[in-house]
């Protein structure tokens, strides 16, 4: 089966400003894909194109097989969308608003009623169903925004920074809600929060300055981008000699150590990718009669990868 969301060579100019360039990706049914990138990377722009709010300058986007330009309305019928700014009608009550949104998404009154009860429950809006949206706090508006996005049980959910501005408990609940949707629904969410991506997403797209710079599972991404393996070893022994021995081990690229005056030092070793040097290093230390005090693999956190991806100029993935 073709992807639920298919984006091909999307490019978008705002006037002369190139916001995204040649963005292509595909999301299969049931996948949760994270869209990760710093401010101004083009996440919102891409999502606005996928939801049919903005036209692409070139390239195509399709949802559930319907092109967002030629068959825009059919495509939109499959989408639930939480825009970044969470725009709501402030003069309506929560219930009235949800009912209106349900109607314009073609739900029948009976289903609207049942689903409103569901989403009010799952988004913990029970105490506010009759409140004016204009009087709700930012976090509660965010919940209403999420409630309207999932109300009609859309095939594809587009969530632009869904957990921003809500309290930690609600963040956990929202994530659980999104996680629950996996399998039956297809979700694309944008975020700055890295743990959120590894927690929720089966795949990550990293976008920077309008270009997709990496795409993989959170785990694979970490492996692939690591480039080098890093080891931290604490050794008791003469520093210069230890350095010399470590540097000669096959696969070691670099050894760094800031001397602390004693002969008990921490050495940072960088090795070629895919090599686990722990056995070799420990044997070398022991056979020289030094003491191995500590030895650990340092894996790069997603945060670092993210920083690296979006700051480094020469990334070829």
């Amino acid at each position: 089966m073709a992807g639920m969301v298919e984006v091909k060579h999307l490019t978008k100019y705002y006037g002369n400003f190139l916001a995204i360039e040649n963005v292509s990706f595909e999301v299969k049914k049931g996948e949760i894909v994270g869209f990760l990138g710093p401010n101004g990377a083009g996440k919102t722009t891409t999502m606005r194109i996928i939801t049919g709010f903005l036209p692409p300058s070139s390239g195509t986007a399709a949802v559930a097989g319907y092109d967002l330009v030629d068959k825009s309305r059919q495509a939109r019928a499959h989408i639930g969308y939480l825009p970044e700014t969470v725009p709501l009608y402030t003069d309506m009550t929560v219930e009235g608003y949800l009912s209106f949104m349900g109607t314009i998404r073609g739900m029948n009154p009976k289903r609207i009623k049942a689903r409103i009860a569901d989403v009010i429950d799952s988004c913990r809006l029970g105490d506010y169903r009759k409140s004016d949206i204009g009087k709700l706090s930012k976090g509660f508006r965010q919940r209403v925004g999420i409630a309207q996005a999932v109300l009609h049980e859309p095939d594809v959910l587009i969530l632009d920074e869904p957990t921003i501005g809500i309290d930690p408990i609600q963040v956990v609940e929202t994530r659980a809600l999104i996680k629950d949707l996996a399998g039956t629904h297809t979700v694309i969410l944008s975020t700055h929060i890295l743990p959120e991506v590894s927690m929720l997403c089966s795949r990550v797209l990293i976008i920077n300055e309008g270009l997709i710079v990496a795409e993989d599972t959170p785990k694979e991404l970490a492996n692939r981008l690591q480039g080098v393996e890093r080891l931290e070893v604490e050794i008791q022994g003469p520093r210069i000699e230890v350095m010399g021995v470590l540097e000669k081990i096959r696969g070691v690229l670099e050894v760094a150590c800031s001397p602390n005056g004693s002969d008990q030092n921490v050495y940072k070793i960088q090795a070629r990718r895919g090599l686990d040097l722990r056995p070799t290093v420990s044997r070398a230390v022991i056979s020289n009669g030094w003491s191995l005090l500590n030895l650990q693999l340092v894996s790069m956190s997603l945060e670092e990868i993210f920083l690296k991806l979006t700051t480094s100029e020469e990334i070829n993935v």
Partner: peptide, 14 residues
């Protein structure tokens, strides 16, 4: 101005 048009126009309405 309020941006609500974003949700209105991304619903399946003509």
């Amino acid at each position: 101005k309020m941006g609500t048009i974003e949700l209105l126009l991304t619903s399946p309405v003509r």
